[in-house]
Design a protein around this nucleic acid. Structure first.
Lengths: 169, 169
DNA sequence: CAAAAAATGTCAACACTATTGACGCATTTC
DNA sequence: GAAATGCGTCAATAGTGTTGACATTTTTTG
């Protein structure tokens, strides 16, 4: 369709990557990547009778063993009622273990069981392969750029927390 | 936690960005970016009584005026029954117009009405601002890397189509 | 031309994920 | 002791997705 030259005013001083059309492309790329990215785990989840919400819980508990329910809620940004459904299932079916906190006994510290770890592996495997392939094809510099832009896309208030959780190496 | 040397075998010849842990971080970054990225439009959509599905339809129809229902289905990768609900609403409420194809009169060519274009603007505005800010902070090189990696994350079969749709400038 | 295929729509049932609102209980903090 | 926190639960409702079955119109094909 051509068209959509964004604006004729070039408010960015000639940085073509800041043109309206480029920005929209940036939006769409994220949509497409996310769409394809979730497709592999979705297939696997179906065989367990689980959905995407279960995946997210398994993933973040797997990555943050001993985390509390409140912390998980802060990452997922859903209500506790919404989390409750999937978390209860995962606990009932033996994928996730809950342990009372020793310092604060109100807390339920979450961790993966052996069974949960297997599921975690199974789900992350195709995603890791996908990312590895993309990283390999794109090269180290592109990867750095990818990570930088994604970090800058986050809500400012969240950035610190995410970078901490994602970069505790 | 420290550590996370992934495997002790270093199957990547010392390219640290291909370590298991880095791959997992790449996964999580995408989750977080998508989560925050959708939050602005979600707020606006609520005031219209719409959801994310409506947004996607408005977006892609806005970007591809005259597109057919089948093409839209291919982009969204949902069933026609699922699309039907939101598309019908958008048509009924005057955001999207349907016109019989002149070459193939079975087709319903989709386009935004004036009202639809306003909604498109309103929804894309905060997302463009977010991307622009991230692009500006990250710089041109990082942006190129971001786009390259995202493209490489796509399903191979889809890559050509997406790059075509995203890059018809 | 008749049969097959394609593009679209629709009815119905169901599943998953999310929300808001209202409580209840145990435990910790002030 | 009162207030706040962490967690769980019941209930109602909404949004988005699926599968399956059909119907209509129009184009393509043998």
């Amino acid at each position: 369709m051509a068209m959509s030259d964004s604006s004729s005013l070039e408010p960015d001083g000639g940085n073509s990557y800041l043109h309206d059309d480029e920005l929209i492309r940036g939006i769409e790329m994220l949509f497409y990547a996310y769409r394809d990215f979730t497709s592999d785990p979705d297939e696997i989840l179906k065989t367990y009778g689980f959905g995407r919400a279960h995946h997210r819980v398994v993933h973040f508990v797997g990555r943050n063993p001993g985390m509390t329910v409140t912390e998980l809620l802060a990452i997922l940004k859903v209500t506790k009622q919404s989390l409750s459904r999937v978390l209860s299932q995962l606990v009932a079916e033996g994928f996730i273990a809950q342990e009372k906190g020793s310092r604060d006994r109100r807390q339920r510290l979450l961790s993966l069981t052996a069974k949960g770890k297997i599921l975690f592996s199974e789900l992350s495997s195709p995603q890791k392969a996908r990312v590895a392939k993309a990283y390999r094809e794109a090269g180290a510099e592109a990867v750095a750029g990818y990570r930088k832009v994604l970090a800058d896309l986050l809500n400012a208030e969240e950035r610190a927390a995410v970078l901490k959780s994602v970069e505790r190496s």
